[in-house]
């Protein structure tokens, strides 16, 4: 009798346990293939669409990762948008005045981290409602970047793609995966690092404990406040990287309100990815792909109003969410301020 409980799980194959994920993956892959087949007639075009997908997904995944580690530790972050915008602005200024892209990236990430600190202070120390805290961050970022914006400031260039040696010569995969800007590489690495850290290290276990049941975590000696502070500040740095990507790798300059809702999209992507780094990456890539497809379809001159093609990424996201992803569960204590007894 005692033996029957455990082995059952071992004998079921991975394929059967995750059958819905597999079905879902096959459908998505098929759709992507069909879409590429429809809109492209040569390999160069396919490569272009795919690498554009990856580029488009970079700020989204970084923003989503910010949301993931914040919420995993119990702090809802509505302020991703503001953290991104602030960092984009600061990184741009740093680049203009220092002329060093790497320094500017670092400074941008620090600006994001500082906004994270502000959010953590409001959410953890002041026990302020976290939706309000995030909204404060968002308005503050719009205000400060708008107030200190200097029109006509000239940019000092942006990151050029780095080619990873012979890997970049592999057909299709090479130019898509191994010919990117540094922040895009960093984002991909961070997805796996955070996955590992969250689920396979003591730090990750503690973070999740604090987000699911802070009182229990507190009882066994985990410092709830400290864990939340550090996670939200690190999250801010990630959102900051996303902002730096926009000014230093993507667009190359700063415009008012240039994040244009990407922080909110990142929030949606985080929920779609069920609060996991890899799931969020999948969602971000899918979104990036629909974005790239939209451009490609318009370029190809499909006989549809541009606004219909423009709605495509968003409608697809809703369909995917409603059809496949279904109910998602946030970390139990996410959004609840913790008060020590």
């Amino acid at each position: 009798m005692e033996l029957t409980a455990e082995p059952r799980r071992e004998t079921t194959s991975w394929l059967i346990r995750n059958k819905w994920t597999v079905v879902f993956g096959v459908i998505i892959a098929g759709t992507i293939f069909a879409a590429l087949d429809f809109s492209c007639n040569n390999l160069t075009c396919v490569t272009a669409v795919l690498s554009s997908s990856l580029r488009q997904s970079t700020p989204l995944i970084l923003g989503a990762l910010c949301g993931v580690i914040g919420e995993r530790s119990g702090v809802v972050n509505i302020g991703i948008e503001g953290q991104m915008l602030m960092a984009a602005f600061v990184a741009f200024l740093a680049n203009v005045y220092l002329g060093n892209l790497w320094m500017a990236t670092l400074i941008g990430a620090s600006a994001g981290a500082f906004m994270g600190l502000l959010l953590a202070w409001m959410a953890v120390s002041l026990r302020m409602d976290q939706i309000i805290g995030g909204t404060v961050i968002n308005i503050l970022a719009i205000g400060i970047t708008g107030y200190f914006y200097i029109p006509g400031l000239t940019t000092q260039g942006k990151f050029a793609p780095i080619t990873l040696g012979p890997l970049a010569d592999i057909p299709l995969i090479g130019p898509v995966l191994f010919r990117n800007g540094p922040i895009t590489y960093l984002a991909i690495i961070l997805v796996f690092v955070l996955h590992y850290v969250l689920f396979y290290t003591r730090w990750g276990l503690r973070t999740r404990a604090v987000g699911e049941h802070p009182r229990a975590a507190d009882t066994v000696g985990i410092n709830v406040y400290k864990m939340r502070y550090i996670n939200v500040i690190l999250g801010g740095a990630l959102a900051g990287l996303a902002g730096a990507f926009l000014t230093l790798e993507g667009v190359g300059t700063f415009e008012r309100g240039m994040t244009n809702g990407r922080g909110f999209l990142a929030l949606a992507i985080m929920i779609m990815g069920k609060w996991t780094p890899i799931g969020s990456w999948g969602a971000a890539l899918l979104f990036g792909f629909t974005y790239a497809m939209q451009t490609q379809l318009q370029f190809k001159g499909v006989n549809l109003p541009p606004q219909f093609i423009g709605s495509l990424p968003y409608i697809l996201t809703i369909l995917v969410l409603a059809g496949f992803v279904g109910r998602s569960r946030a970390p139990a204590a996410s959004g609840v301020p913790y008060e020590k007894e």
Binding site: F264, L267, A268, I271, Y314, I318, L321, V325, G326
Partner: peptide, 9 residues
């Protein structure tokens, strides 16, 4: 489907 995502989209 979470209302936050759907309304954003």
């Amino acid at each position: 489907a979470h209302e936050v995502i759907v309304t954003i989209m």
